Computed example of a mutant assay.
Amino acid sequence: MADEFISNTPDFNNPSSSSPNRESVKILLIGSNRGINSIIYWLHRLGFAEVTAWSKPQVAPNSEHKEVMSITVKQVTVD
Rank of each mutant, 00 (worst) to 15 (best):
D79E: 09
P57C: 01
R34L: 02
S32T: 11
S32M: 03
F5A: 15
L46V: 04
I36G: 05
V68C: 10
R45D: 15
T72Y: 04
I27N: 02
K26S: 12
S18L: 11
E23W: 02
L28H: 03
S70N: 02
R22A: 04
M1S: 14
P57R: 03
N37T: 02
A60T: 14
V68Q: 11
K56I: 01
Y41R: 15
L43G: 03
S63F: 04
V78N: 02
M1G: 15
N62V: 06
S24F: 08
S38H: 14
L46A: 12
W42R: 15
Q75P: 05
S70H: 03
R22W: 01
Q75H: 08
V51F: 02
F48S: 05
E64K: 10
I30P: 01
R22V: 05
L46R: 15
K56V: 05
E64H: 04
F48V: 11
E50W: 08
N21L: 00
E64S: 04
V78Y: 03
H44L: 00
E50T: 06
E4T: 06
T72E: 06
P20A: 04
R22E: 07
Y41S: 13
T72L: 12
D11S: 15
V76N: 00
A49P: 08
K56R: 14
S24G: 15
A49L: 13
L29V: 04
T72V: 15
D79H: 00
S7E: 12
A2K: 09
L43I: 02
G35V: 05
A2H: 12
W42A: 13
G47R: 06
I36D: 00
S18C: 07
T77N: 01
N37Q: 14
W42L: 14
A49Y: 10
S18W: 03
P20R: 05
R34Q: 07
R22G: 02
N14Y: 05
F5Q: 04
I6Y: 12
S63T: 11
L29F: 12
L28D: 02
V73T: 08
M1N: 10
E67R: 11
V59W: 03
P20M: 01
V73G: 00
H44A: 13
P10W: 07
G47L: 14
R45I: 01
E64N: 06
S63M: 07
K74E: 13
I30Y: 00
T52L: 10
W54H: 07
V78T: 11
N62C: 11
A2Q: 10
S19Y: 03
S17Y: 02
K26W: 12
D11K: 11
L43S: 00
L29N: 03
V78R: 12
A53F: 06
